[in-house]
Amino acid sequence: MSDAPASPDGSPVLRMEAVRKTFGDSVVLRDVDLEVAPHTVTALIGASGSGKSTLLRCANLLEDIDDGAIWLDGEEITDPRTDPDAVRRRIGVVFQAYNLFPHMTVLENITLAPRRVHGVARAEAEEHARGLLERLGLGGKAGAYPDRLSGGQQQRVAIVRALAVRPRLLLFDEITAALDPELVGEVLDVVRDLKGDGMTMVLATHEMGFAREVADQVCFLDGGVVLEHGTPEQVFGDPRQERTRRFLRRIVEAGRL
C-alpha cells in the first residue's frame, strides 16, 4: 500500500507467464504472457468473451489459474502459500457493474477497507476519502446512498473506493460499458488524471479511441490468446495479424474508433 514505486529499476509491477485458465471444458485463457511496467497503462481489447474479465480476475486472485504463474512486484502470487488477502490489499479493482455496497453511504463504502483491513483511524480514513471525492467531483455526495447516484457518479465512487487503499496496481474492467456517452467522458477523465499521477493500470475496454489515446500498451485478446500486443500506434495502425485487422475494421465500421 504505497504510492511510491517499489521497483525503481522499471521491473514490471505485474507479470504473467503462460497463464492458462479453464472453466470446465472451455479454455478461457491460453498461454497468456503479459508485462505491465510501473506507471503505465495497459489496455486489454478484444471481442466479447475473449477473456478480458477473466484475465483481470486471475490477476486479482478472484480466480485460480490452471497453469502458468503471476508475479506482483516480483513476488509470485500464484504460489499456493501466498495469502490472497494480502495480495488483494495491494490491488484495486473497479468492476463494470460498480458493485458498491447498497447498505452503506458513499463515505462508508470508501472507508470500509482502509479502516477494517488497513487499520486506519476513522477520522484519517474519512479525511482521505473526502479529499479523493472532492478531486473526482463528488464532494457533496459523501453521505448519499449509492442508489441515489447516477451511473457515472456510482462508477466514480467505485474508483475512489479502489483508490482509497493506495493500491500498487489498479484493474479496471469495462468501467464505462454501462454509461451514456457523456458519463463515459466523466469517467475517462478520471483515468487520464490517474495516469498523470503515475498510477499503474490495466483496463479492459471497448473504448478503442480512449485506449489509443491513453494506453502505453495495447493487448488484443482473441479466444483467450494474446494475439497481438504493442504500442497503440502499432496495434491500431499496423496490426500484424489478419484477425486483429478484421476486429478493428468492424470497430471502425461501427463508428467506435
Binding site: 478472484l62 488477502d85 494480502a86 488483494r88 458493485n99 458498491l100 477497507a113 477494517r116 483491513v117 487503499v165
Partner: peptide, 20 residues
Amino acid sequence: SQRAAARSLGLSNRQALRYV
C-alpha cells in the same frame, strides 16, 4: 459480486460476511 467486491478490497471472508 458483492462478496467479490469485498474480497477484492482485501477484506477477509469473515469481514466480507460481517460488513457486507
